[in-house]
Nucleic acid binder design. Structure first.
Length: 649
RNA sequence: GGGCGAGUAGCUCAGUACGGAUAGAGCAUCAGCCUUCUAAGCUGAGGGUCAAGGGUUCAAAUCCCUUCCCGCCCGCCA
């Protein structure tokens, strides 16, 4: 017999056993739902029910007495995996698994299913779009943004293993002033060829251009304020100007040549800000010259992103340009449809979506879990000049996504929770209730640096590439220290997957709702509870299997009687439970936790119990089979979060 | 002011959706283990009023209410 989820088989037997016992001893009562939980401790058996506590109260008897009665009427012989059933504590019913059979079932299943073990397929496979990363193509991806692709990619991987058809989408936000700013600077420089990694190159142009233009704008404002003798405005403007001037000084020192060149070129324009606005409008209008220019800069930046993401094993199936939704009638269609609803109002000539009215009219508060006094603020849809806003365009994009998928998961920071809620409400308002139901905002908390405020505008950021480089460097130091005998090539190779793995793991390891404070010590941790720790453990298991020089030919699984061995079997058998839960509740951090626990248990086992020098051939083979199973499951787990499982390190 | 998210050991975090048996790890500190399958490892010690208070329950870190504290959002930005 082979099972994707051995624990589930045992659970079903226990459930049937209790149901039967209830029917026999208490034929008159309605069958309660029987929940079985994993026990806190192997001594309490492997599954336990606390149903006697609830039932005893209704029946007016003692829980323990009830448990004893139920246990007495279980006919064990009808079940395969149940070794014994016992009443325990104040009224628990504890089920003990027959380890000889359960170990055989679990280890044979893992051996047989190998790369597929534990990936229980969903009964309702769907087409799913996971939109993630979607960093604006203005500057390199920085560490504050890098948690997004790590989470998004892990989600895509687990959903795919669950049997969904997953498509990874990158939404390119190329509509908006910022893109015009960088394109303006790029054009002023005469569209130079990048002399370094292209996103880094674009990022410098963006920061410097934006700074020069901003100073120019503020100076004009100041003139106006002087003329109108508005003292309050003047103070404010001067303060802002001071700040930008200090940024300019920094940038001038960091990139003197670029700064000089851009200052000179931009100086030729009477009003750079107006030039940028003109470019922006031209782009939204789809004028060929503007299209060519902005797409060119954006593509340069995206090339850099692709290279960065490839390093960590993240790829995308679709690159969706926001501008495409503006150039085609899609955004206009959204506006037409929304205007036909009773939720649009006009304030000072600007169209707004009354999100709160929509929730009330369509009775959505309960459904969406909004508290009664949660008044959802209105959403402005278009500017006075008729151009659209980000969320309006996002509505069109979302509708498009649902033409290609039944479920859409947006991996977007929690600071955009309100906008994502308004977007969802707009879908309901437009009659796309089913789509709205299947739209998920996967919100995650920010990555921050202690004592360092990252700012794209100031050019203050640590790029993801820098973090990866540093991770690989530190890993290399570590490899040299620990394994000086290896060849240079091997050292480099190991350093690479260790460093990259450490970063990926560190960014998915923490619950997505909690903030991650970025420190090198945290991200480049090579000890317990890190990718390197799990990788090392995997390599250790591989090493045993190599030295064994044989398959587990005649294993006697009944001999796996050590407590640690049983715990390991239980962990392996419960892999599918964990996987299903992580996927259904979108909790990729559970995967990392599981890997760490399994590695922990194996290392304890490794130190305490010999595999190849065990007492009998039957036991040796059983332990080889156990080691093999651990290696397979650990590898499957690491792959779920995109971390390499090495055979040596 | 309103909304959302968080508060668990000195530090970083599991556990909370679905209430169950003595609240778990790692880091740091201290004491040990490499002629034995990879020491990126293992063993042991100390460290907790689960933010505070109240409530529901046979049972609360977990559910409900109140308060405190921190972060984010409430733009004709994205």
């Amino acid at each position: 017999m082979i099972a994707q989820n051995p624990y589930e088989l045992f659970r079903q037997e226990c459930q049937t056993a209790i149901a039967g016992a209830l029917k026999k001893t208490l034929p008159d009562i309605e069958q309660p739902t029987i929940s079985l939980k994993k026990t806190p401790n192997i001594d309490y058996g492997q599954l336990a029910s606390s149903l006697c506590f609830e039932l005893a109260k209704k029946l007016g008897v003692k829980p323990l007495a009830l448990a004893q009665n139920l246990v007495a009427s279980v006919d064990k012989s009808r079940f395969d995996l149940i070794e014994k059933v016992e009443p325990a504590g104040a009224g628990y019913i504890n089920f003990y698994v027959d380890f000889a059979k359960f170990s055989a079932l679990t280890l044979k299943s893992i051996r047989k299913l190998d790369k597929e073990y534990g990936f229980v397929k969903t009964e309702v496979p769907k087409k799913v779009i996971v939109e993630h990363t979607s960093v604006n193509p203005l500057h390199p991806i920085h560490i504050g943004q890098a948690r997004n692709p790590m989470l998004g990619d892990a989600l895509a991987r687990i959903l795919q293993c669950r049997g969904h058809s997953v498509s990874r989408h990158y939404y390119i936000d190329d509509v908006g002033r910022q893109s015009s700013v960088v394109a303006y600077g790029y054009a002023k420089l005469g569209k130079p060829k990048p002399t370094e990694k292209s996103d880094l190159f674009v990022g410098k142009i963006y920061t410097v251009t934006s700074c020069i233009v901003e100073i120019n704008r503020l100076k004009r404002l100041r003139e106006k304020a002087c003329i109108s003798e508005n003292a309050d405005d003047l103070i404010k403007i001067n303060k802002e100007l001071d700040e930008w001037v200090s940024i300019a000084a920094e940038l001038q020192e960091k990139f003197p040549v670029l700064f000089m060149a851009l200052t000179a070129k931009i100086g030729e324009d009477e009003n750079p800000e107006e030039e940028i606005n003109r470019l922006n409008r031209a782009y939204e209008d789809g004028q060929p010259a503007a299209k060519e220019l902005i797409r060119e800069v954006s593509d340069l930046c995206l090339d850099g992103f692709r290279a960065t993401m490839k390093r960590v094993g993240v790829t995308y199936d679709s690159w969706d340009w926001e501008s495409d939704f503006v150039w085609t009638p899609q955004v206009n269609e959204v506006m037409t449809k929304l205007q036909a609803t009773p939720f649009i109002f006009n304030e000072k000539g600007v169209l707004q979506f009354d999100a709160d009215k929509a929730t009330k009219t369509l009775d959505l508060k309960g459904k969406l879990g909004l508290s009664a006094n949660n008044e959802v603020p209105p959403l402005t849809l278009v500017r006075a000049d008729g151009t659209t806003l980000y969320t309006t365009r996002d509505i069109a994009y979302t509708i498009w996504k649902f033409k290609h998928a039944e479920k859409v998961i947006n991996v977007i920071g929690m600071e955009q929770s309100l906008a994502q809620l308004q977007l969802k409400l707009a879908l309901y308002a437009m009659g796309y209730a089913e789509n709205a139901d299947n739209l998920v905002h996967f919100a995650y908390n920010l990555v921050t640096l202690p004592g360092y405020k990252m700012s794209s505008r100031r050019g203050h950021y640590i790029t993801f590439d820098e973090v990866l480089d540093e991770a690989v460097n530190r890993a290399y130091q570590e490899v040299c220290k620990r394994s000086p005998m290896l060849s240079e090539e091997e050292k480099r190779n190991i350093a690479n997957f260790v460093g990259l793995g450490a970063v990926r793991y560190a960014l998915v390891d923490v619950d997505s709702g909690k903030p991650v404070v970025f420190t090198w010590e945290r991200v480049l941790n090579f000890e317990t509870n890190s990718a390197p720790y799990v990788q090392y453990t995997h390599a250790r298991a591989c090493s045993i299997l190599r030295k064994a020089e044989r398959e587990a030919e005649n294993p006697d699984f009944a001999l796996l009687s050590e407590r640690l061995e049983k715990e390991l079997i239980l962990n392996l058998a419960g892999f599918a439970d964990m996987f299903i839960e992580a996927t259904e509740y979108l909790k990729p951090n559970m995967i990392a936790d599981y890997a760490n626990v399994l590695a922990d248990k194996f290392n304890t086992f490794y130190n305490a119990i010999p595999v190849l020098k065990a007492d009998s051939q039957g036991l040796i083979d059983a332990r080889i089979a156990l080691t093999k199973a651990i290696q397979v499951v650990m590898r499957n787990t690491l792959n779920l979060v995109g971390v390499t499982a090495p055979e040596r390190m």
